[in-house]
Design a protein around this nucleic acid. Structure first.
Ligand code: ZN
Ligand code: ZN
Ligand code: ZN
Ligand code: ZN
Lengths: 184, 184
DNA sequence: CTTGACCTGTGTCTTGGACACAGGTGTAAG
DNA sequence: CTTACACCTGTGTCCAAGACACAGGTCAAG
């Protein structure tokens, strides 16, 4: 039984360590991945969208999104039109999620995958892109930090001030007086 | 001359100190804001979109955007259909920009303005909203910080690693090995 | 047979504007 | 006067990375 399981789903072996958000594996194997059942609907060891999503801890919409933009190219069961995700799709999606965690944009990832699909090393592209994205992230970080400080300062100052009704040229004295101070 | 200028445009007096991105004021006054010319096209001291934008250091598109979503409600010159921005619109837009600088969303600002327009003090709303936004900004800051650290760590580790061609189950060893390590 | 869970593709929504486009207006120079 | 050019109008679309909705098809269990 274990043998026939790994027969049709051997691409899953060794992945457990890498997927910490994936729980209840045995149950899922028991319910959805019993080899007999899998064989019934699909012989090549492929899975449907929701199972693919669950294995990588994302939503089905995310899997559909990457399918829609053609990063994933699952087969199609001619009988019912259902998508069939293979080991290759699984590896691709896992890669995509890893890259997203490192701040690559989806477009970056498409570029990287283009290289890999042409058997060329994507590494130089990866190094170039992460350098760009790192600079952007640092700028973003500085901006967010400044914004937070401004907000904290405002909350602090406002704690000493009363509420006021709006006047002809002052819509909210809290906001406008704070901004006026800042400009000094 | 100075007198007649302040006659039709007195709402601008005292604003110079607050607009640091506004340059070449005298020229603009000379060219576009000569009282005689202003009187010719519009008697109430109102200005057109591009001038409004320039005074507050934003683009005309920004002014049009806030007009579109009805935060600004300029009049309309019946002769040519041009928008006419008044002192009130100027104050509103200045307020909006100040609030944006403090991290309020446009929707927040609409809510704040609703209070002010009904002569009610927007201050309680302002205090409540900035508290929310501050929490969000802090979360954002933590996330961005974590992302930056991850990216820096990746760049550091990758500097010791060679480029490699993709294999059957490894699209880019840099990204996938880094992510695998992270999970330990 | 029905129910409910799942699947499909497609379209729309999110933010805060930026940009494009088609057509009207105002003014200065040739 | 004409022409060029800068400005104006409203409207529609675009951005990122999915999330959500909808109409309709599929499948297994009770
Ligand atoms: Zn199949
Ligand atoms: Zn690589
Ligand atoms: Zn007017
Ligand atoms: Zn207030």
């Amino acid at each position: 039984m274990t043998k026939s399981r790994t027969n049709s789903l051997d691409f899953l072996s060794g992945l457990e360590l890498m997927i910490d958000s994936y729980q209840g594996k045995e149950q899922i194997f028991g319910v959805n991945l019993n080899p007999a059942i899998v064989r019934l609907s699909c012989e090549e060891g492929c899975v449907k969208v929701i199972e693919m999503a669950r294995r990588l801890g994302v939503t089905a919409d995310t899997v559909r999104f990457y399918t829609r933009i053609k990063i994933l190219k699952p087969g199609k069961n001619k009988a019912n039109g259902y998508r069939e995700y293979s080991e290759k799709d699984y590896n691709r999606l896992r890669f995509v999620l890893s890259a997203r965690q490192l701040g690559f944009s989806v477009e970056d990832i498409q570029e990287i995958l283009n290289h890999a699909d042409n058997k060329k090393s994507p590494c130089p592209t990866v190094r170039r892109l992460i350098d760009q994205r790192l600079h952007e992230t640092e700028r973003q970080l500085r901006e967010t930090l400044k914004l937070r400080d401004r907000m904290q300062q405002a909350v602090l100052e406002w704690s000493q001030k009363p509420d006021k009704a709006p006047t002809g040229h002052m819509l909210c004295h809290l906001i406008e007086e704070f901004t006026a101070e800042e400009r000094l």
